Deep mutational scan, measured.
Amino acid sequence: MTEYKLVVVGAGGVGKSALTIQLIQNHFVDEYDPTIEDSYRKQVVIDGETCLLDILDTAGQEEYSAMRDQYMRTGEGFLCVFAINNTKSFEDIHHYREQIKRVKDSEDVPMVLVGNKCDLPSRTVDTKQAQDLARSYGIPFIETSAKTRQGVDDAFYTLVREIRKHKEKMSKDGKKKKKKSKTKCVIM
């Protein structure tokens, strides 16, 4: 069974824990209790493949930012979460993405942009803004509501699919490099 290491990042209060708990335990946590770091595991079937999701729910508070490099190193894919009623959390996505790329030393890291709290009427981040940002990053965008469960499975499952595509691409690139290195030079 394939294991996928997913990391949920975003500013404090955007609903990272609520999304994760909704996926794992099928219930909505409405009281806000700032996370330092929590880890969850769940076995699911995605596109006919049974897999184990190892999900790291991270601290959004700035005082825990020193811990970010460590979990970013171990993560295979990242859910970059903002709240649709919090423009600052949307603007912060850029910083999370840049930090992930720096730590992973790669421009090509599996990510999904997630606009959470889409059940709320007080939207300050337009869907088109988020779609445009995701398009500019070359990553999928999904709106979710941890409260109603809308888009929750889709967000995590899409990230797994992005990781699969990335692994497939990397193995193809690896095979191309191996083929090239088999060419021999004969000096007579």
Rank of each mutant, 00 (worst) to 15 (best):
R73C: 05
S17M: 00
T50D: 09
E3I: 05
Q25P: 04
S89G: 12
E49A: 10
M67E: 00
L133I: 09
A18G: 10
Y96V: 12
V112I: 06
E76I: 08
M72Y: 01
D119V: 05
R102Q: 14
S39H: 01
D132T: 04
N116M: 15
V112Y: 12
A83K: 08
G12Q: 13
I187Y: 11
R164T: 15
L52V: 12
Q99E: 04
F90T: 04
C80S: 04
M67A: 00
E98C: 05
T87N: 15
S65D: 03
E91G: 08
E107D: 09
L52T: 12
D108N: 07
D119A: 15
C51P: 13
V9C: 14
N86W: 02
E91T: 15
S106E: 08
R102I: 07
A18L: 00
E107C: 09
T127Q: 04
F141H: 05
S122R: 06
S65C: 04
V8Y: 01
T124F: 08
K16R: 00
R164V: 08
K117M: 14
A59Y: 00
N26C: 14
R135N: 09
V9E: 01
D132H: 06
K176C: 09
A83D: 15
N86S: 09
V152Y: 13
A11T: 14
H27K: 09
I142A: 15
D38W: 00
Q129S: 10
S122V: 08
Y96W: 15
R102V: 07
V112L: 11
I21S: 15
D154V: 07
L6F: 06
L120I: 09
A59L: 00
K176A: 10
D30Q: 12
V81P: 03
S136R: 07
A11W: 09
I55V: 08
I36K: 00
E76K: 03
V112N: 01
T35D: 00
I100S: 02
H27R: 04
K167H: 10
I24Y: 04
Y40E: 00
V7M: 05
F78Y: 04
T2C: 10
G75W: 03
I55S: 05
R41P: 14
G10K: 01
Y32M: 02
V9T: 11
V45P: 09
T58D: 00
E37L: 00
K165V: 08
R161W: 13
N85I: 13
D154T: 07
K184V: 14
K178R: 09
M72A: 02
I100H: 01
L56R: 01
L23I: 10
S122N: 12
K42E: 11
L19K: 15
V160R: 11
D105Q: 05
K104I: 12
A134C: 07
D153C: 06
V160T: 10
R135T: 09
C185V: 15
R41K: 10
I84D: 15
D33N: 01
M67S: 00
F90V: 12
V44A: 12
F90W: 14
K167R: 06
Q61K: 06
G60D: 00
D54N: 06
I142G: 03
E63Y: 06
L6M: 09
V109I: 11
Q99T: 04
R149A: 10
M170V: 09
Y40P: 00
I24L: 10
Q25D: 15
V44T: 12
K176E: 14
A66C: 15
Q150K: 03
G10F: 03
Y40Q: 00
K16A: 03
E91V: 14
E162W: 08
S145H: 06
P110C: 03
M170L: 07
E143I: 04
Y40K: 00
L159F: 03
Y157K: 12
G75F: 03
P121K: 08
E63N: 04
D38V: 01
V8K: 04
I84A: 14
I100F: 04
Y32I: 02
P34E: 04
K182M: 06
A18P: 01
T87H: 06
H27L: 13
Q129I: 12
T74E: 15
I84M: 15
V8S: 05
E107W: 07
D33R: 00
L56Y: 00
K16T: 03
I36P: 00
S106N: 10
G138Y: 04
V125Q: 11
I142N: 05
I84E: 15
R164Y: 14
I84P: 15
L79T: 03
F78G: 01
Y4D: 08
V14L: 10
I36D: 03
H94C: 15
K169F: 13
P121G: 12
D105M: 15
L6Q: 03
L133D: 07
V81R: 01
Q43Y: 08
A83S: 14
R41Q: 08
T20S: 08
R102P: 02
Y40C: 00
P110L: 03
C51F: 09
A83T: 12
I93S: 06
G60P: 00
M67R: 00
Q129L: 07
E168G: 11
K117T: 15
E3L: 08
K179L: 13
K167W: 08
R123Q: 12
L23K: 08
E49L: 04
V112K: 02
T127V: 09
Q43G: 12
T2W: 10
G174L: 10
I55F: 04
K177M: 11
S145F: 05
F141D: 11
G115L: 11
E162T: 11
K167S: 08
C80K: 02
K88L: 13
E49M: 12
M170F: 12
E91D: 08
V44I: 14
P110H: 06
F28Y: 08
F90S: 11
E107M: 14
K147M: 08
K180E: 05
K5T: 06
R68C: 02
M67T: 01
R97N: 05
Q22T: 09
D126C: 08
S171L: 05
V14H: 15
D33Q: 00
V125N: 11
K128L: 06
T35F: 01
K167V: 06
V7R: 09
S145T: 15
Y96A: 04
K184F: 04
D119H: 14
D119K: 06
R123Y: 10
Q61W: 01
N26D: 13
K16W: 02
G174V: 06
G60K: 00
Y71E: 00
Y157A: 13
K88C: 07
T124R: 07
Q99W: 03
G115E: 09
Y40V: 01
K5Y: 01
P34N: 01
T50S: 10
G75P: 02
R149F: 06
E168I: 08
K182S: 06
I46C: 09
K177S: 11
T35E: 00
C80T: 03
V152F: 11
R97Q: 07
L23S: 13
T58W: 00
E63P: 02
T183Y: 15
C51Y: 12
L159M: 13
A134S: 09
C185H: 09
A66G: 08
S145L: 04
Y32F: 02
A130R: 14
K5I: 01
C80W: 02
I139G: 08
S136F: 07
S145R: 15
Q99R: 03
K42R: 09
S17K: 01
E107G: 12
V7K: 12
K176H: 04
K104M: 04
L56M: 04
S181C: 10
K42V: 09
G75I: 01
V160H: 06
R68M: 03
E62S: 04
H95E: 06
V114I: 09
N86T: 06
V9P: 02
R41G: 10
E143D: 09
D119W: 03
G60T: 00
T35L: 00
T50R: 11
E107R: 11
V7D: 05
T87C: 05
Y4V: 13
T2E: 15
G15T: 01
D54A: 03
K101N: 09
K88H: 06
K172L: 08
T127H: 06
I100K: 01
R164E: 14
I46L: 13
I142F: 08
K5H: 11
L53T: 07
L19M: 14
K184D: 15
D57L: 00
E168L: 04
I139S: 05
D33L: 00
V44Y: 10
M67C: 01
I100R: 02
I142S: 14
K175V: 05
L52R: 13
K117F: 13
Q70D: 15
R68V: 00
E37I: 01
K182V: 09
R97T: 13
M67L: 14
N26F: 07
